[in-house]
Nucleic acid binder design. Structure first.
Lengths: 127, 127
DNA sequence: CAGTATCCTTTATGATACTG
DNA sequence: CAGTATCATAAAGGATACTG
């Protein structure tokens, strides 16, 4: 077996996965990919995210050096989030997922329909 | 704002994200990327996954047409999981995350250390 | 072997209220 | 505006027992 697929606790993939195998993080990264945003701006744009989750997600991404946070001493305070150089390289990778999704969504949807009808047919027989 | 970043319920990215922004799914995809595996083989390989989660994850991936399940009428039964053609294209994309992780894990770890020490320093001042 | 079913615990997330 | 704190609930996950 190759080193790449050892899923032990020290595996870097697992560490990074705990950050990005997360819907909110992916959405935040995608939103910040092109241009910086303020907190509530992000919140409105992502839409489905709560204040708590956004705050938590941004903090985690900042901790990992994926995004950076800059506060301006306005009244009230303005805070701008933006991708770091490191973050941008991750964002490009994550963006591939978006591209894959848009390209293959129809195939996936068809597969789901197929699977579901096969299942209900089986349920029919069992009854 | 570009179409790509509208996070409404119909967004294909969100639908796919609900599947792959998931640690177990990513691990299963990574494990099946190179060669087919049997259920318990996968379980041992991923290690940290429970029977319940593996079963659930594989079912979801099969439903989406990412992997396929083939049962052999041996005693006891043997079941082999493998990537579909569609799945393989996703796996390649997901594999980029693994590559990114291995390449940048040190930078991320450093960023975390930095962030944490800055935080504790602040806590020190507040006290 | 390859699961399913069930119960129980932990974690994630939402809603609400409050602050500099 | 940009959060934090707290409580409540829903969802995820683990452990165990059981089956073809």
């Amino acid at each position: 077996m190759t080193r790449a697929f050892e899923y032990n606790a020290d595996c870097p993939t697992l560490l990074v996965l705990d950050r990005i195998a997360n819907k909110w993080a992916v959405l935040a990264i995608a939103a910040l990919y092109r241009e910086p945003r303020r907190f509530n701006q992000l919140r409105r744009e992502i839409g489905s995210i709560s204040q708590k989750m956004l705050s938590q997600t941004l903090k985690g991404l900042e901790r990992d050096g994926i995004i950076s946070r800059q506060a301006f001493a306005t009244v009230p305070v303005t805070v701008e989030y933006s991708m770091t150089d490191l973050g941008r390289t991750l964002a490009e990778t994550v963006d591939q997922l978006r591209i894959w999704s848009e390209k293959n969504i129809d195939t996936v949807l068809d597969a789901q329909t197929n699977y579901d009808s096969a299942q209900s047919q089986y349920a029919e027989i069992r009854r």
